[in-house]
Computed example of a mutant assay.
Amino acid sequence: MLIATVRLDLDAVALDQAFDSVPGMSIEAERIAAHSTEWTMPCLWVAADDFDAVTDALAADPSVDTVIETDEFGDERYYHLDWNEEVIDRITAYVDREGAILEADATDDGWELEIRFVGRDQFDTFRETVREQGNTFELLNIYEPGSPRQTAGSVTPSQRDALATAVELGYYEVPRAISIRELADELDMAHQSVSELLRRGTENLVSSHLVTTAADDQSRSGDAGR
């Protein structure tokens, strides 16, 4: 099982037009339903300076069929939406890849989704589905539940994913089967970012395994000579 956090463009999910109208708002999906894609992310908490403008923007956004209910709580407002068929089909294409949306937030920078996948194959299929729809995404984090997300002297989830993908696709073969730019395309990241992840990940692996081992071996040799 993998849990990945990705950032998608607004038009890869919903509310692109609404954010054009109210760029300063932020959205948090309250409940991610598992039994019906029509009820995936229907309840949103919105923070904004002008809720009248938000309500008008949501009602006018083509990704929303109906604003069913609203209720204001301090500096946030709750919205219950009925998505249009295109949004439902789009989300279905994501979660039907044996994935489950665990969290969803949006700003004018895009949607940040945390999605659970059965395995790497399902994650790869999700990524290809996003591409087939003409969208791109940024991988923010990926890890296996039950494994530590980060330990001192070890690799981070992003470093681990970059390193594993590089090995899988032959980046470390001689001659290389894939360039750094091609690897960056596979990871949907800038090639400078991938290069940095590989460099730091390699450094962390060497520090945590080889340097520590060498120091331990030297210590044991010294103890043996006493």
Rank of each mutant, 00 (worst) to 15 (best):
H209K: 00
T202R: 13
E186K: 11
T202P: 06
R181Y: 10
L187W: 03
S207K: 13
N204G: 04
S208A: 09
V174F: 15
S195E: 08
H209G: 00
I180N: 02
L197Q: 06
V174S: 15
L187C: 06
I178G: 09
R200Y: 12
S195M: 08
P175M: 10
S193Y: 05
L197N: 02
Y172L: 11
E186L: 02
L187K: 08
E173F: 12
L198G: 00
A190R: 07
E203K: 03
S208W: 01
L183R: 09
A190C: 11
M189N: 09
M189D: 06
S195N: 12
L210N: 06
S179Y: 06
L205C: 05
H191G: 05
V174I: 15
N204K: 05
R181F: 08
E203I: 09
H209D: 13
E186Y: 03
A184P: 00
L197I: 01
E196G: 00
H191S: 11
E203L: 12
P175D: 04
V174L: 15
D185H: 10
R176I: 00
E182G: 05
A184I: 03
D188M: 09
Y172M: 08
G201E: 09
Q192T: 14
V206L: 14
H209E: 14
G201P: 03
D185Q: 13
R200H: 12
S195P: 02
D188R: 00
E196H: 14
L183S: 10
P175N: 02
V174K: 14
L197C: 01
E203P: 03
Y172S: 04
E186Q: 13
V194P: 05
H191N: 10
D188I: 04
R181W: 09
I178N: 00
E196Q: 14
T202N: 13
T202H: 14
M189F: 10
M189P: 05
L187F: 06
N204A: 10
H191R: 04
E173M: 11
Y171F: 15
R200A: 09
H209C: 02
R199W: 11
Y171A: 08
S179E: 08
A184N: 01
L210G: 07
H209N: 12
Q192L: 01
S208L: 07
L205A: 09
R200M: 11
H209A: 04
S207C: 03
L187S: 06
S193C: 05
D188Y: 05
I180T: 10
P175C: 01
S193V: 05
R176F: 01
L210K: 02
P175F: 09
R176H: 05
I178M: 11
L183E: 01
I180W: 05
E196M: 09
R200C: 06
S207A: 15
N204I: 01
S179R: 07
V174H: 15
Y171N: 08
Q192K: 01
V174W: 15
V206G: 01
T202S: 14
L197Y: 10
S208N: 06
A184Q: 09
R176S: 13
P175V: 03
S195Q: 10
H209R: 02
S208E: 04
I180C: 10
D188C: 06
S193M: 02
Y172A: 08
I180P: 04
Y171R: 08
E173Q: 12
L198P: 00
